[in-house]
Write a protein that binds this DNA or RNA. Structure first.
Lengths: 238, 238
DNA sequence: CGGCAATTTGAAGGCAGTCAATTAAAGTGG
DNA sequence: CCACTTTAATTGACTGCCTTCAAATTGCCG
């Protein structure tokens, strides 16, 4: 919503990384990934970057032609929909290893850096024509899209539940995706989380305070949480 | 949720229809579809049905192995998620020509006939191996899944808006999908719609009454609506 | 016409939103 | 390193939309 400060690159990922390596390195085993040397070369030719974005920088604009799809190398990216009245919704967060923007011809959503982030650009047309030649690539793309669909649906369902359930689910899910069990360092702002969960920051804050007071979680700082009672947290998700 | 009365098949579609023909016939031009004779034969071998389901019959059960994907030939199908407390959410409605169940290995949702319906079964494994050989099929599947994703996201966003907006959007969208402009014959029950929009039937009813009283729509019967003021209806969607 | 299911309407309560003010944290410049 | 500015997060009081519970009405099908 506001301006930008340029500065320090946030994380790992040398500029020589190639998409295949990144996919292979970052994607954990349960997720599908491509695994062929012949494909590797073709992919290399399609990519650009990784490019560094400072927090709140726009990576792709709502309505732009979607010439590229994106791979998060480090940091967190959010996709947003902004309405006429100024309301903003965060549709999804993407973490290192996540591929996004596969969706449409035209960007239905804007993509922004929720933290300082490195993002690899991959030419859409090239990837799609590669997919037409290599069934492994096409089935990979289908698997990624299917995964996104599953997430989108679960998120839609979550929007019909109360604040406590939404927050508990978000925290559990994020902690799982970050691979840290027990402690959760929220990489994004409360505002981003609230907009993702369809709540106000006030309600989010009150809900977290509630979780703290009932001993489910503890807070070192607003962004640093610890799960004190995993069982209770899980039960709140239902 | 309750029993079933067997009886009359509801619509067109002789049992000799083949998936290719059905896709070609039913899917309107803006949607992507396969268009190759060589593929046609392969598809024919994969299909079974169409099979008739009476209203509220279960087509696929939550948790089942997802051996088939489905093509709605006639009627309306709903996919549902039921929670422990008995709450039910309708994730999506599928109309004639819609393909669904492409999502996952395991059914995350149950599929049920929202009206009497004819559904064509297509063997998942066969279709996927066909997609591996025929890039036209794989790109078709990707396009279908991408479309589902777009819908799922829009629906998720809709859940953050008020009842009037949800109902207006649903009515507009349904009328568009049914291809009828102006008049809307709701094929599914208010309960189904309410569960789809994350509202109670009471709120849905009150909202529709509100729309009627403000002259936006008119009602012949609870299920038969007429758009009186398209502009107002569209403005409510924002 | 009778019986059941679906829809509508009414009244009261709860959860989250809004508005407003305070506190905490983080960045800036001297 | 500290004072200052700016941003982020918390807390409180009140309002409003939607839900819940209850009852009446309508529509449908035998």
């Amino acid at each position: 919503m506001d301006a930008t400060k340029n500065g320090k690159p946030p994380g790992a990922a040398s500029s020589h990384n190639r998409i295949f390596d990144v996919i292979k390195t970052l994607q954990s085993s349960p997720r599908p990934f491509v695994d062929e040397r012949t494909i590797k070369g073709a992919l290399s030719a399609l990519q650009r970057g990784p490019i560094h974005f400072c927090r709140n920088n726009v990576i792709a604009c709502e309505g732009d032609a979607a010439d590229y799809i994106f791979l998060v190398v480090s940091g967190v990216v959010r996709t947003c929909k902004t309405f006429q009245n100024g309301t903003r919704n965060v549709v999804a967060f993407y973490l290192p290893g996540d591929l996004f923007g596969l969706d449409d011809q035209k960007c239905a959503l804007s993509a922004e850096a929720a933290t300082d982030a490195m993002v690899l650009f991959i030419k859409r047309s090239g990837l799609l024509s590669l997919a037409a030649r290599e069934s492994r690539v096409s089935s990979f793309l289908l698997a990624v899209t299917t995964g996104e669909l599953r997430r989108a649906r679960e998120h839609g369902l979550l929007m019909n539940r109360n604040a406590k359930c939404r927050v508990a689910t978000f925290l559990t899910d994020l902690s799982k995706r970050l691979g840290k069990t027990g402690s959760i360092d929220l990489p994004m702002s409360h505002q981003d989380i609230a907009d993702h969960l369809g709540l106000t920051i006030e309600t989010l804050s009150r809900t977290i305070t509630g979780l703290e007071q009932s001993g489910v979680i503890a807070r070192a700082s607003p962004r640093t949480l610890t799960v004190r009672n995993q069982y209770s947290l899980t039960r709140l998700m239902t």
